[in-house]
Design a binder for these strands. Structure first.
Lengths: 200, 200
DNA sequence: GGTGAATCATGAACGACGTTCAAGAAGCGA
DNA sequence: TCGCTTCTTGAACGTCGTTCATGATTCACC
């Protein structure tokens, strides 16, 4: 009776619906029946296309990561070529904070969703974010010293902590911005000072 | 027929059961029926005692916070009275990391459970942890300068980020320890240097 | 166009979840 | 013992993720 929609159409419709639900109502509101109703297909079809609901959620999260990647690119493009590392890191950190806050629900979904099946081939969102920002810090991953890599990872984790507390409103938004730049500056300065004193 | 158990007994039995489930299988395994079965009562009784399942979870989390508070006290007691703030903070931060890792499921439950009803009278876990550690940093909250309070909050958020990444294995455990002490040292040093340069 | 096999969409059905509540058991003062 | 209150119980409700027999649709071949 009804025309059978191309497979790709269902896919994009479901993804768009899922995105909208996550953005407007948060990760918890994302259910198979909701998506099916809004994508105008049955739950069965959803499972044919995505395997598990995890699959759908992962794709939504991949879209978010792509958005983050784009923001990274924009931020880097705005920096002068000879910008110091502290400047680069500060800009990236502020961008990360801004991104998490303007896309609160999207960003939360990245961490609220713990994939049930421990697929070790698949990188965790944390590692993906990590790699994307490290790559954008303007350093070729190949010729980065182990110590530099460490300080970078440490910095990112620390900033992630502040961002997380900012998103769930434990830290007021005004202060979060200051904290992030404090962490970058204090981290870089303290780190350099410690290196100079031979403490590392 | 059967003797009616005292109300308090059911309460402690349910709490003990819930704790065990969280510790051994994680927050996701905590269901009303599981707890009821293991506490040898009906689901209805559980709801009579705790109102909602949230109530039970909150009590488990309060136990965890009490444990954390005890660890804070132990850590502080071990410090010499004239220990510098950097030393105090470092000890507390390492303790926090150790606590989160040895009580992985307990600690995760603190953050995985988002109370549905936004009870503004009730402080968030983050704020509770915050207050408990700040109080233990050896500073009377009354005579702490605004700038010091800021740097403390920033430090705690940053350390929380590293701990979170350590618990979910994004950062290997060996490195997490180094990162935590790096953050404390770099934070304190960088912060002091910036104050001396009049940048703050 | 007709036909058979292969492919795909469908939604009722399953078990588990949080939560409720009518019915009955247990307690208790008389 | 009786009446009244108080507490316990588990079946029942609606929702969740997930499955799968059924029937509709497609398509290669005649």
């Amino acid at each position: 009776m009804t025309l059978r929609k191309p497979l790709g159409e269902v896919r994009t419709a479901a993804l768009r619906a899922a995105e909208l639900i996550v953005v407007e109502e948060g990760f918890a509101a994302l259910t198979a029946r909701r998506v099916a109703a809004e994508a105008e297909c049955s739950v069965g079809t959803l499972y044919n296309v995505f395997g598990h609901l995890d699959g759908l959620i992962n794709e939504v999260n991949l879209l978010t990561l792509r958005m983050l990647g784009d923001e990274v690119a924009v931020t880097v493009a705005k920096l002068p070529d000879d910008a110091r590392r502290e400047t680069r890191l500060s800009a990236l950190a502020q961008m990360y904070l801004r991104f998490a806050r303007t896309h609160r629900n999207r960003w939360s979904a990245l961490f609220e969703h713990r994939p049930a099946t421990e697929n070790s081939r698949q990188q965790s969102v944390e590692q993906l974010i990590f790699g994307r920002i490290v790559a954008a810090a303007g350093i070729n991953p190949a010729d980065i010293t182990a110590r530099d890599a460490d300080s970078l990872r440490m910095l990112l984790a620390a900033i992630h902590g502040v961002v997380a507390f900012s998103v769930n409103r434990t830290i007021p938004s005004k202060e979060a911005e200051r904290y992030v730049s404090l962490i970058v500056q204090a981290g870089v300065r303290g780190y350099r000072e410690m290196v100079e004193e031979g403490l590392l």
